[in-house]
């Protein structure tokens, strides 16, 4: 049995290596579950990394938490969930800090909270409180975002970062995001999106779920259907009609020349 320090070090490195892939987060989650004796320790480890790392890693850790709680609950181990509920504010603060440096993460946090709520890892009251805080942070950016086109078409092209556009609080964000990070984030988001979509076809195990889904998805009869019908008719005509012509020819060949 590894000593607590060793476990902590290993888990830390697993958290650091998190990316958008499912395997990386599953690996970390399983490690944490295996060493549930040290759950306190490992939980603090998550928070620590959350506060230490960059914006992309925070998003990754956040997605990991959701996945991790899922697994923990499946295994009937609720300790981690309780600790996370207790520290949820801290998590949100770390991922979408007040200073605006995590503005790009606000959408992620919202999604995260929503998911937790759906899975009843989070009660509605807490969720709505956090949402309010987030909205505040969001409006900070909203107010300063290009809310209207530049006045007139005079030469504003090289205008220095204007006060109206970037607020003092969000000012710090720019330097923190370098090009590489942005591109990495884009790729990771795409990867996650792909994962999400892998489940879109799934149908709940209800009696008429499939029927309902089809019913929902099928649009009313309209112009498109008529058009499609016409095209199919044309195709049918060209295939079947052609065969008939052939037959006709043969018949003419046989009977037509007495």
């Amino acid at each position: 049995m590894a000593d607590p320090f060793d476990i902590r070090m290993r888990f830390t490195s697993l958290i650091r290596q998190l990316n958008a892939s499912v395997t990386s987060s599953t690996k970390a989650a399983q490690y944490a579950l295996k060493h549930r004796d040290h759950s306190d320790d490992l939980h603090s480890c998550i928070l620590e990394q959350l506060e230490k790392s960059n914006m992309n890693s925070r998003a990754n850790i956040m997605y990991f938490i959701e996945h991790f709680l899922d697994l923990a609950n499946k295994e009937g181990y609720h300790e981690y969930m309780k600790m996370m509920q207790r520290d949820i504010i801290r998590v949100v603060d770390a991922v979408a800090p007040e200073d605006g440096s995590g503005a790009a993460n606000i959408k992620v946090v919202r999604k995260f909270l929503h998911a937790l709520q759906n899975k009843s890892f989070l009660d509605a009251e807490t969720a709505s409180q956090i949402e309010e805080v987030l909205r505040d942070r969001d409006t900070v950016t909203q107010d300063t975002v290009m809310s209207s086109p530049p006045t007139g078409s005079d030469n504003l092209g090289d205008m220095a970062p204007s006060q109206t556009m970037v607020s003092s609080s969000s000012h710090k964000k720019a330097p923190k995001l370098d090009r590489k990070q942005i591109e990495q984030r884009i790729e990771e988001d795409r990867e996650r999106h792909k994962r999400e979509r892998e489940n879109t076809w799934a149908i709940p195990r209800l009696a008429d779920a499939e029927l309902e889904k089809l019913w929902e998805e099928t649009s009313d009869l309209g112009e498109d259907d008529i058009r499609m019908g016409r095209e199919e008719y044309q195709e049918w005509k060209s295939q079947v009609g052609g065969g008939c012509n052939h037959d006709k020819d043969e018949r003419v060949g046989v009977n037509g020349k007495p």
Partner: peptide
Amino acid sequence: GTPNRKEWPNLIEMPWFELLRPNHRKPNV
């Protein structure tokens, strides 16, 4: 030019808006 909310209300809803928002406002040429 740079986009703005008046012309594109859903601009800030874009997932990477914060990620990719321009530092300078630019006119439409």
